[in-house]
Write a protein that binds this DNA or RNA. Structure first.
Lengths: 210, 210, 210, 210
DNA sequence: CATGAATGAGACTTCATTCAT
DNA sequence: GATGAATGAAGTCTCATTCAT
């Protein structure tokens, strides 16, 4: 009745969220099969059995967690698409800035690992990602490129390939961070990489032949 | 008398290779934890127990398989390094051609998945790969870029980042093939991608500002 | 409503004890290697997996069980030592009485078998027993004998050997019970053996040469 | 044809004997279940498969080995029985001497361990030993004691118990050697033990009360 | 709601035993 | 006769999942 409970006690309503976060972390680190519910429970500060109050199976928890992690990304993609009215050069800058800000902080790396690593074991997962995230993102980007081509801002060529060229270095450096930084390798400075990448996209890698 | 199908055949020399190949396939598909020795054995056409005649543990089999898959790659990297005396433009062409030829056929995608997916669970594996493959490859490429910069062939900028920019689209399209093609997505045409990527590297993505 | 026999019952406090007892019995009968966890579990009325809630490995269970069986013995040895102020003759009687009472009822025989049979495979076990049980017991007995020698109650001679002479028949008859009685041999009547043994110790086996 | 073979090459006829010896050693050290055929084969210098040329199963090998180890003992027991016409005092001396000489060198300790440790798993083994060795030996000794009692050389009392009293210290010190000496304990000097034991049997442990 | 206790299914691994050479 | 190669059966151990409190 009265508020005799210590103030730091977590709210019941927060539980599913806390569990999902713990699960995301563990799945991202270990992969699906090697992740133990026990560890997830411990990190979430609950008992193993409690997980089943909120999720039916390990698989359901996994799917839910990955799906949930998608939501913010989706919104951001939509934003990018809307920004596509800008001149292409400015668009790129905006886009790179968004990627940098997000990829730096967020759990994107861990999620990417999971999707890559478990796609064969969970085709639904791959599908979900294609449908909800990667596909839209890639089409949007492709569309922007195509539009820019129409406006004469971008050279001719397969716009889908251009899209990959734009995104790939960011993805690779995030995977690098997840894979090799833990064993002592130098991470990439995303900020610097973004700047240099933009410059290259603008003018090529090589000195003007002239 | 007639060929009465013996229960098993003696093939000491062939077996380890056969097992390693089966293991590579299964590990690449499932990841370490989800791979079952039973399936590896079945694909190799031997009993589970036979695996232990050639490998001490599942982990040892995994490590060995991933390590072995490295060898051809190492040789190729060496080749690239030697090619570094060429004009940078020609070098790029050669390099892209080599990647294309190899990444198209080989098990590179599956191996990449394994390394990315299991690096947290097997840090030794990540180390091995950094030390033996990725590290040398990246340094070699970085070195070539730096040399080209000294000769005025390449713009100023962090050569390590340039190296990533060069390689990233190839890596991403291989991961795409492993991850999303199995669920019905269109693969990338590496050949075409290579051509367009080289063009972009040469002159930038965008139309000359004039 | 009625007592619908739940699949299992919660008995946190009782379980470890129950398991330990079952394990002791099975180990004593079969030895370490031949003992199957399945049988231990069945006798304890739990599943195989439940054993691992209380013990980390089969080996740990074995060690723990043997170690635990030690405790009462230790106390008894201490008691004997305190009794050492008695005249030697009375001491012997007390000692034999204690051995008889214990060796008759307890699991001593089974434990002895285990220690003897598994000492090579588990040197730690042999050490534990020497340090905690056999060593102290033997030294205590040796000390009592030596003291009695000093008081002129016992003939000259190696007191450690006297200690063995005193104990050996009891040990042998317990081993006999464990080894040959199950195949139909007559057991020894410990009570009678104790009486006759004491008499012999007092006056020798042979008629006075006169 | 000609004797070009190195002279140290083992004869085929020696094989079974060599295998049996190796097996005895391994069984004595490890017990039946923990003994690995691989180790036995290695010690005998043959392949695992070769064991099956001479013995049908592991169990058969075990039984055979233990049975074989019996033979010399049987002969010795017969000898003792024949010596039973001697005055009891001299008989004891002879008997103790024989035990000492044999128990010191032979594999008796290991065999005793095996019989004790595996009697529950191999009741036939226990039976065999009772029937062939322990039983005859004990009856013989009991008989000698009884005869000596009839001649007034030995006090009244259960002759079977006397037999145990006579033998027990020897048995215990051999078990001690097998069990605790490997972990660093001092062995008993059988010679000295024999002497002191005989003295005790003659005149008791204690100073004449008078 | 929450959890400690329990379990069944399944994985890796070992080993006595057999087969083809 | 001898052996290297192979296997089936079995054992230890793990873990997602469920029950009783």
């Amino acid at each position: 009745m009265t508020d005799t409970e210590p103030k730091w006690r977590r709210r019941k309503e927060a539980r599913p969220q806390e569990i999902a976060e713990a699960a995301l972390a563990v799945f991202a680190e270990r992969g699906f099969a090697a992740a133990k519910l026990e560890e997830i429970a411990k990190r979430a500060g609950v008992s193993k059995a409690a997980l089943y109050l909120y999720f039916d199976t390990k698989e359901a928890l996994f799917a839910e967690v990955v799906r949930t992690a998608v939501a913010p990304g989706v919104a951001r993609v939509r934003g990018m698409i809307e920004a596509s009215e800008l001149p292409f050069d400015q668009f790129l800058q905006l886009f790179a800035g968004a990627l940098t800000a997000n990829a730096l902080t967020g759990p994107a790396g861990g999620i990417a690992k999971m999707v890559i690593g478990e796609s064969r074991n969970f085709p639904q997962l791959a599908r979900l990602w294609v449908d909800e995230i990667v596909g839209p993102m890639l089409s949007a980007l492709t569309g922007v490129v195509a539009k820019a081509q129409a406006k004469g801002e971008v050279r001719s060529g397969d716009p889908r390939v251009y899209a990959v060229q734009i995104v790939a270095p960011f993805l690779v450096s995030v995977l690098w961070r997840e894979t090799f930084v833990p064993v002592g390798e130098e991470p990439f400075d995303l900020q610097a990489l973004a700047a240099q990448h933009l410059a290259t996209l603008r003018g090529g890698l090589m000195e003007r032949a002239s």
